[in-house]
Design a protein around this nucleic acid. Sequence first.
DNA 1: CGAAATTGCTCC
DNA 2: ATTCAGG
DNA 3: CCTGAATGAGCAATTTCG
Length: 815
Amino acid sequence: MPAKRAHDAPTTPNKRQKGKQARIDTFFSSPRTPVRAPAASPPSPEVIIIDGPDDTTDSPKAGPSTAPSHAPPPAPSSRTFSLKSSHAALSYPSLTTDALTFDVLQVSAQWTPGAPVPYSFLAHTLKSVSETRSRIAITNALTNCLRVVAQHHPASLLPAVYLLSNTVAPSYVPVELGLGASISKSIQQISGLSSGALRDLYNNLGDVGDVAFAAKSKVRTLIPHPPLLVTGVYQSLLAISRCKGQGAVKEKQKIVEKLLIASKDEETRFLARTLTQNLRVGAVRTTILTALSRAFVLTSRSDGRQSGMHAPAVLLASVKTLASPSKSQKKPAVDDAREQIIELFDRAEGLVKQVYVRHPCYEDIIAALLKDGLDGLEQHVSLAVGIPLMPTLGSPTRSLDEVFNILQDHPFAAELKYDGQRAQIHGQRNDEGRLVVHIFSRHLENMTTKYPDVVHMFQSMCGEATGASSFIMDSEIVALDPSTGALKTFQELSNRARKDVQLGDVRVAVGVFAFDLMYLDGQELIGLPFRERRAMLNSQFLAFVPEEKGIARFSHVECCDSQLGRDAIEEFMVKATESRCEGLMIKLLDSCEVEERDAKKAKTRRKPFPATYEPDKRTAAWLKLKKDYITGLGDSFDLVPVGAWHGNGRKAKWWSPILLALRAADGELVAVCKCMSGFTDAFYKGLNDRYSLNDESTTSSRQPLWGGEFGGFKPDVYFRPHEVWEVRVADVTISPVSLAAKGLVSQARGLSLRFPRYIKTREDKGIEQVMTAGELARVYEQQEARGRHDGGNDEGDLLDVDIDGSVPASESDST
DNA sequence: CGAAATTGCTCC
DNA sequence: ATTCAGG
DNA sequence: CCTGAATGAGCAATTTCG
Ligand SMILES: Nc1ncnc2c1ncn2[C@@H]1O[C@H](COP(=O)(O)O)[C@@H](O)[C@H]1O
């Protein structure tokens, strides 16, 4: 039975954080493991990692690295530690108060000078942050927290930032916790609750952390435990990530249990969330960066030198003393000091964020900040070959009209939007003249060893005498037919092996379609307008078809500039639709200004509209025009909701996702896919009313009362089929789970839908009128027939390529 | 040793 | 990927 | 407009289970 699956997390950096959360209920719903009393395994406090081992580095980047690595923060030497009040709970002040008047000593005075920061302080911070949705309060809390940590125990700062940002390492460093459902076993172990009780808790709370908290509050811990430390918790995470091979799960579980046993109160909640990489406090990357920058503005430089970026102590002092009530006559002076600091905040925030998106590594940034403060940051931490920068993102648009509306008559390039995988490719010639290549994914994971054929291609292309000696390029890697160059589908590409692939083992040939150049021969290009970057890309890298077999192809993305006229663009869109492409990417060529209507003043303002490479930005300078967004072009199906699962986190009180079904030829409803997108909160409330799970419910049940074929889907609850929903989808896929339309396209497998999103309820339709299996199969066949006319690349491939895998008969798999 | 379960990552 | 909610 | 959260299908890799 397939579990619920993980997801992309574009709003959060690095490790796909959400993931496991979604799958945990799978464990909770399998009542199997026998319960053991917590007393059966008495915890031994001394095995808890309290500090980093003396002789190992604090950093996940340990070992040989191409990254310009800074010395790790000094490992805290004390294994023993003491807190002034190791038994009485520490009491922390509110952190959401104004960062300008916050008193660091209020917190750190309770701690032994120089001692590592206790984890309870982080838990307190996370609690404060999770209790509000006000951005200002969240930023204050994080700023105050980081400021306390930076001043009290600088070596705790990096671990604190990792723990607050829900990450363990930079995305390009492969550190994985590999913890999912196993944490629930640990909770069971330490709490002694039955798996059924835990499942009920989970169904109600929708959050592992809340479950851990509730479960633990029911047990009394017998042995007092030394407080968890920020550094220690972080080290434990790294220890978990290092567990490999047979017995790894048990080993991880042991570490998790020790942590959970040692945790107190709120610590338990956030520890459990951290372990599942699902912090859910309403603040991750960007807010942390803002807070980090502010914390350093408010921290004077260690060398006491004058600085243009840190607030001078006098300024701070004046804000503080004058802020005390009763001195209202001095208000103007306060306001002035305040303004100056806020000005510094803004500059520092811009700087830190700019540095981060070009070099997304907290370790390097914090090392530089601790060493030279904000002033030296840009110099110490810069765009570098071997370190991925964050990619520019495209904004969705629904029509060419909208595109012209946004871009007015500024020149743009329309490029094919290839259906593959984004690849940021770095190359640099080393001392021996050999080109060292790194390839990063869209989320900046290092996938160099997945594409030896691409590495070799660049090494052949950039021969010793010719070609660039260093570069960073943005591209899409697409599966293709090695002899004709005809494009293949994303699904073909995803069949490639991923780890440590040898050149001879490559089964799926690919091509690199380059569309941007961010760095060339020691020069940053990201500040140049796209037209210039593109010209350099085109002149420095020529299309390349390898003579040798087994090496990737290279070409530029096919494009059509706006100067060719609107008709040409429209034709190009049709071409994109007919090749195996998802649509177009539309890119502003020259930096310019746009008119902006100010509604209030009925005035127009001119706003700069840069065509530069903007890491991590989703602006109108890059527009994506996907065929499935376009009204009339995308597929929209009518389906029946037949079941659902308990929602997680924010949606804990609602049904989410919802299982949808179509009609087989004999009228039976067959589950086809889950749907979770497109629902408003109000709609969820309505669903709760219509499908409430109480005793008299006639619309929902724990048992499949109303028949139907569910295939591999095992919803928490079944719905009486009676509604019809219109759902928009991007694609039809052959599924390992769904049995919808089984036998029509594949003998053993059914069809499913990609990117389903709810559009509206079809009040006008009955469940007999929904999409049928035959109709879905026809859509699939049409979709597969597309894209065989034109590969869309430089090699003429108008001859029909093989139809492998596209024809129903050949797709059948044995049963 | 092979199947099943779990996880992490990609993406239209 | 996608969508929605809140400041 | 920015930031965050919560979720899709489906693949390879890893580890445990039988
Ligand atoms: N010509 C192109 N320019 C930019 N991105 C492209 C291009 N062709 C394909 N893409 C992909 O489209 C993705 C953005 O679309 P989306 O993921 O729908 O936001 C990028 O991450 C690229 O992987």
